[in-house]
Every structure is written in structure tokens, then in C-alpha cells.
């Protein structure tokens, strides 16, 4: 049996919305430790990894050691959009029901002694488990900046070029693009905002390097403003995939791995 409840359905909706940017369907792996979702986009360019630990939920119970539920993200997102922000979201699954395999989604709104309830059932599908595993990487370079700022730059660059070049230096990040018609250059410097720490830019770059990324992937990662207003980019060098990370409470979060382009 599985049952988990959340008082902020908006946050879970944001997670599913972020995943559905790249992925049509994926396995939800429920264990006693929490929910994990990992999937590749159809082009196998970006790897998305989500952890929602048991303590991240307001209530969490999974009796099985591992429960793999194949979920169509587009349909789940449609259901989640039906839930009022002030409702209690409950996900449940009964694995003794052999006839229909479905994830139940319920929204409850307190009305004094009574509750308004909306219930949905999402039919599950079989998805072969992913064989790929994220390798352990020792990140040597790290940059942390406002998600909104990365979003703004990626959105602007997407108007000009499908490719963006990131040059990480010890004291600055240059993001640029060029096309036949124009070029664009952004310089981002580390700084501490003493009145609002969320505006700060922090970088710890041991060895400067340059990498080209496909713009629309960076833009879609940066849409995670609702997950965390800060994005952390972890790197090693131009030959190793970069990780874009948006953390949440209780060791939960969403992160993406993407490799740099070969040559442009």
C-alpha cells in the first residue's frame, strides 16, 4: 500500500510540470525512503533526476520495498492542475487490485466540519526501468545564481541562437552566442547582496573552462523558479556533463545532467 499527502499541491505540480518539459512518461519509484523519478528526454540529451524524500511529504507511507509505477506525466499534470492551491493532495495506490492498476489522486479542502473532495484515477502504464545510473562525480567547480537571472539570459539568447557558450572563469561567467546576423554577450560576476541573499552570485571555479550548451535545454531547466529561486550549476570540465540543481527541503530536489556540445 502507498499513501502520501502534501499540503502544498502547487509544489508537486511544479515538479511534474518541470519534468514534463522533456519527458512524456516515466517510472515513479516509491520506496520507504521516498519517491524517486529519473528519466531521459526522447533525444537522450538531458537526464532528469528527482528526489522527494519521505520527510518532504506531510505524510508518507509505502509498505513495499520498491513500487514502480509507470506514469504519463502529461495526464498527471492535467489532474494536478485541477487541484486548488489550498487543498490537501493525497496520492494512493493499492497493489492488491489486479484488475486495474491506477494511481489515485485526491484533493481535499476543509469546509469546517466537512471537506470538499475531488478524486481522480490515473491509469498506469508499463515502462521498462532505466538501466543507466548516474555515476558518482566529484564536482570541482560550482556556480550559484538566481534562477530568474539564468532564465532571463537563456530566454534572451534563445531569441538569437540555439547554442549558448558558457565561459567559466575564477571571477566571472561569460555567456554568449553568435549568429550570422548578431552576437550577444552577458557577463555575470560574483557578488553578495547583504539585504537579499537570494540575489547573490557565488562561484567557485578551480580551473577555468568553456562549454557550449543547447539553449532550449538551459532555458527549460531555468523554468524551475517555483522549485528554488537559486540554481546551482556543478561542473568538472568541458568533457564531463554539467549538473543543474534545484534543491528543496529535506534533501529533496530536482537536477538535470547535460553534456556540452562537441563542436559548433
Amino acid at each position: 500500500m502507498l499513501e502520501c499527502k502534501l499540503q502544498e499541491p502547487k509544489v508537486f505540480r511544479s515538479v511534474v510540470e518541470a519534468m514534463s518539459e522533456h519527458i512524456k512518461e516515466c517510472n515513479f519509484e516509491f520506496t520507504r525512503e521516498g519517491l524517486k523519478m529519473q528519466a531521459l528526454d526522447s533525444s537522450h540529451i538531458a537526464f532528469t533526476f528527482v528526489t522527494l524524500s519521505a520527510t518532504w511529504w506531510n505524510e508518507y507511507r509505502c509498505d513495499d520495498e520498491a513500487l514502480l509505477l509507470g506514469v504519463n506525466l502529461e495526464t498527471l499534470l492535467k489532474i494536478l492542475k485541477c487541484g486548488p492551491d489550498n487543498s490537501l493532495l493525497a496520492l494512493s495506490y493499492e497493489n492488491d487490485d489486479d484488475e486495474v492498476s491506477e494511481l489515485k489522486v485526491k484533493f481535499e479542502v476543509d469546509r469546517g466540519e466537512k471537506k470538499d473532495v475531488a478524486e481522480f484515477a490515473l491509469k498506469l502504464t508499463h515502462i521498462d526501468p532505466m538501466e543507466e545510473e548516474v555515476p558518482e562525480l566529484t564536482w570541482t567547480n560550482e556556480l550559484e545564481m538566481p534562477t530568474q537571472e539564468l532564465f532571463r539570459i537563456a530566454r534572451d539568447i534563445s531569441l538569437f541562437s540555439e547554442i549558448m557558450v558558457l565561459e567559466f572563469d575564477k571571477d566571472k561567467l561569460r555567456i554568449s552566442c553568435s549568429s550570422k546576423e548578431s552576437t550577444a554577450d552577458y557577463l555575470v560576476h560574483p557578488f553578495e547582496d547583504s539585504t537579499n541573499a537570494s540575489n547573490s552570485v557565488r562561484m567557485n571555479i578551480e580551473a577555468p573552462f568553456k562549454v557550449s550548451l543547447t539553449t532550449h535545454y538551459v532555458l527549460s531547466f531555468a523554468k524551475n523558479k517555483n522549485i528554488n529561486e537559486r540554481v546551482v550549476i556543478k561542473m568538472i570540465d568541458a568533457e564531463t556533463p554539467l549538473m543543474f540543481s534545484f534543491s528543496m527541503k529535506e534533501g529533496s530536489g530536482i537536477c538535470y545532467y547535460i553534456a556540452g556540445r562537441l563542436t559548433d
Binding site: 537526464f47 548516474v134 562525480l137 564531463t240 553534456a259 556540445r261 562537441l262
Partner: peptide, 14 residues
């Protein structure tokens, strides 16, 4: 897009 390598090829190499 020939210049954008798949992430799986990296994972298998690492």
C-alpha cells in the same frame, strides 16, 4: 543534432 552528444554515452563512459 550531431554535435549534441547523448548523456547516456557519458554515463556509460564514466
Amino acid at each position: 543534432d550531431a554535435n549534441q552528444p547523448s548523456i547516456t554515452s557519458f554515463f556509460s563512459k564514466l
